[in-house]
C-alpha cells in the first residue's frame, strides 16, 4: 500500500507541478490558454478502448477513457493429477475506466500519470476431461463439477505511470497518433479459488491453506501487481478554441 501511495503521490506532484509550470509558462504575455478536445480510440494490453482528451495548451492534457478485453480459450490445455485428467479453459477479462494526465516534455514525447479502475480478472476453469468412475458409478464431467481459479488485482483502483511517443491530441493538426509504454501498480495479484459439486470444498476458506500461502507469496513479490501496458492510439480533434 505504501508503494501505491508513494507512486501515486509522486506522479500527482510531478504532473501538477508541470501543469502549474506550463500554465505560468503559457500565460506569459502573447500566449493564451487554449481549450482543445479530441476523441480517440486505441488498442493496448488492457484491451480495446476509446477516450476523450482535453488540453488547456500544447503541454498538458487530460485523458478519460474506457478499455475492455474479454477473451476465452476453451479447453486450451490439459493437466494430469493422479489418475484424473483436467481440461483447463483460461479466460482473460481486462480493461476499465482511466483518468490520466499527459505532460508533453517534447513536441512528440510525453509522460503520463493517473488512476485506473481495473476490471482485470484472469480465470482458469478446470474440469475433468472425461467421465470418471468412482467406485462402480460413472460420473460425467458435468456431474463432477468444476474448479475455477481467478487472479484479480488486490486493489481495484491503481496508479498508472507511462511514457509515450506522438500525441493523444493534435498540436496543430486534427489527427494525432501515439505509442505508449506504462504500467499499473495493483498492489499484488490475488488468487481466488472456487468449486462446484465434487470440487466444492476448494472454495471453502477453511480448506484453502495452500491458496493462502500462494497469495502471501504473491504479495511478497516486488513486481506482483505490476501490469504492463503497451498501447497505440489515434485521435481526432473535435473542438478547437
Amino acid at each position: 500500500m505504501k508503494k501505491i501511495i508513494f507512486t501515486f503521490a509522486l506522479s500527482v506532484i510531478t504532473l501538477v507541478s508541470m501543469a502549474q509550470a506550463n500554465e505560468s509558462l503559457d500565460t506569459t504575455p502573447g500566449k493564451k490558454i487554449r481549450l482543445d478536445a479530441a476523441i480517440g480510440v486505441g488498442a493496448s494490453t488492457n484491451g480495446l478502448g476509446a477516450n476523450i482528451v482535453a488540453s488547456v495548451n500544447n503541454i498538458v492534457a487530460l485523458r478519460l477513457g474506457y478499455e475492455t478485453l474479454d477473451k476465452s480459450f476453451p479447453d486450451a490445455m490439459t493437466i494430469s493429477q493422479s489418475d484424473y485428467t483436467f481440461n483447463v479453459s483460461p479466460s482473460l477479462k481486462n480493461g476499465g475506466f482511466s483518468a490520466i494526465l499527459d505532460w508533453y516534455i517534447r513536441r512528440s514525447f510525453y509522460i503520463s500519470a493517473g488512476m485506473v479502475m481495473s476490471n482485470l480478472n484472469l480465470t482458469a476453469n478446470i474440469k475433468s476431461a472425461k467421465a470418471i468412475k468412482i467406485g462402480d458409478i460413472e460420473y460425467s464431467p458435468d456431474e463432477m463439477g468444476e474448479m475455477t481459479l481467478a487472479i484479480q488485482p488486490q486493489n481495484k483502483i491503481s496508479p498508472y505511470f507511462g511514457i509515450g511517443f506522438g500525441r493523444n491530441i493534435g498540436r496543430s493538426k486534427n489527427l494525432a497518433m501515439s505509442f505508449e509504454l506504462g504500467a499499473y501498480d495493483m498492489g499484488a495479484y490475488v488468487l481466488n479459488v472456487s468449486g462446484t459439486k465434487l470440487f466444492e470444498a476448494n472454495g471453502d476458506p477453511a480448506s484453502q491453506t495452500s491458496i493462502a500461502n500462494l497469495n502471501e507469496t504473491l504479495k511478497g513479490l516486488s513486481w506482483s501487481g505490476i501490469y504492463p501496458v503497451i498501447k497505440i492510439g489515434i485521435s481526432y480533434k473535435i473542438w478547437k478554441n
Binding site: 468412482i134 476448494n202 495452500s210 500462494l214 507469496t217 504473491l218
Partner: peptide
C-alpha cells in the same frame, strides 16, 4: 518462492 507455493497447491476432491 513462487515455484514452491505453486508446487504445494492442492486440488480438493470431495467423495460423492
Amino acid at each position: 518462492s513462487l515455484k514452491k507455493s505453486v508446487d504445494s497447491l492442492q486440488i480438493i476432491v470431495g467423495t460423492p
